[in-house]
C-alpha cells in the first residue's frame, strides 16, 4: 500500500517534468503521437473506401461481413499483437522487412487493430444518411459517383467521429505497443508502455506525468469532437484551414 505522500510527491514531480519540458517525456509523447497518427491515417485510407464499398454495393455475404466487422470492434489488443508478432518476426511471412521492435511494426499493428472499428463506424455513418437524401440526389440528376461523393459529405461528421475514435483506441492501447514495440527506451517506448514500466519500477512521478499527457491528448480529441458536432467548426475544410465558404 502506497502512502498518500508518495502520490502527492508523484504529482508534484509530474508537474515539474511537464513544466520543464523534460526531453524524455517529450520524446515519448511525440513518438506516441507519431505512431498512433500514422496508423490512424493509414487505417482511414483503408477503412473509409472499404466501408464505402461495403455500404454502396450489394454482394453475397454482406450482412455476415458486417457482423464480422462488428465482432472485431472488441478485438483484444494482445491478440493483434500476437498475430502481427507471428507475421513480422524473423521466421514469419513478413520477417524480411525487419519490422519487429520498430515503430513501423507498431504502426502496422495499431492499423490492423483499429481498421474494424473504423470500417464498422463508417458503414454505420453512411447508413445514417437516409433514403430520402439518396432519392433527392437522384432526382437532382446526380450520377452514381456524384451521389456517393455527396452522401459521404453528408456523413462527414459521423465519419470524422469514426476516425477520431480509431485514433483514441490506437493511442491508448498497450498490448500491440508492448508486444511489437518491446518498449525499447528512445526507440519504441510510447506513453502507455512507459507508464506500465515506470509504475512497475515505482517511478510514480514519471508515470503520472505521462498519464496526464495521455489524458490531455484525449481531452483535445473530445474538444475537437465537441466543436465539430456542435457546429462551431462546420466542415473538415475549416479544421484544416481551407478557404471559408462564401
Amino acid at each position: 500500500m502506497k502512502k498518500l505522500s508518495d502520490i502527492v510527491s508523484g504529482i508534484v514531480q509530474a508537474i515539474n517534468l511537464i513544466i520543464t519540458l523534460n526531453p524524455e517525456v517529450l520524446q515519448i509523447a511525440a513518438l506516441s503521437l507519431y505512431i498512433s497518427l500514422s496508423s490512424t491515417i493509414i487505417a482511414s485510407c483503408i477503412a473509409i473506401p472499404a466501408g464505402g464499398f461495403i455500404h454502396f454495393y450489394d454482394f453475397r455475404g454482406k450482412k455476415v461481413l458486417i457482423a464480422l466487422i462488428q465482432t472485431l470492434y472488441s478485438l483484444p489488443t494482445v491478440v493483434v499483437g500476437l498475430l502481427i508478432y507471428l507475421m513480422i518476426s524473423r521466421s514469419g511471412p513478413l520477417g524480411y522487412f525487419g519490422l519487429l521492435f520498430t515503430p513501423g511494426g507498431m504502426i502496422l499493428g495499431q492499423t490492423v487493430l483499429i481498421i474494424p472499428i473504423m470500417m464498422g463506424l463508417v458503414i454505420a455513418a453512411l447508413s445514417g444518411v437516409g433514403r430520402d437524401i439518396r432519392d433527392t440526389l437522384v432526382s437532382l440528376g446526380a450520377t452514381g459517383f456524384q451521389s456517393i461523393i455527396q452522401i459521404v459529405k453528408e456523413a462527414r461528421i459521423a465519419i470524422l467521429s469514426a476516425v477520431i475514435l480509431g485514433f483514441g483506441r490506437a493511442i491508448s492501447e498497450v498490448g500491440v505497443a508492448m508486444m511489437i514495440g518491446g518498449n525499447i527506451r528512445g526507440e519504441t517506448r510510447v506513453l502507455t508502455t512507459a507508464i506500465a514500466l515506470q509504475t512497475g519500477l515505482g517511478d510514480f512521478g514519471f508515470s503520472i506525468a505521462l498519464g496526464i499527457i495521455l489524458l490531455s491528448i484525449a481531452l483535445v480529441i473530445v474538444a475537437i469532437m465537441y466543436l465539430i458536432t456542435s457546429g462551431a467548426i462546420g466542415t473538415i475544410e475549416q479544421i484544416i484551414g481551407g478557404a471559408p465558404r462564401q
Binding site: 437516409g130 430520402d132 437524401i133 437532382l140 455527396q150 453528408e154
Partner: peptide, 11 residues
C-alpha cells in the same frame, strides 16, 4: 426534377 412529401435538405 422532383419535390418529395417530406422536406429534404442536404447538410
Amino acid at each position: 426534377s422532383m419535390v418529395f412529401q417530406k422536406p429534404v435538405v442536404l447538410n
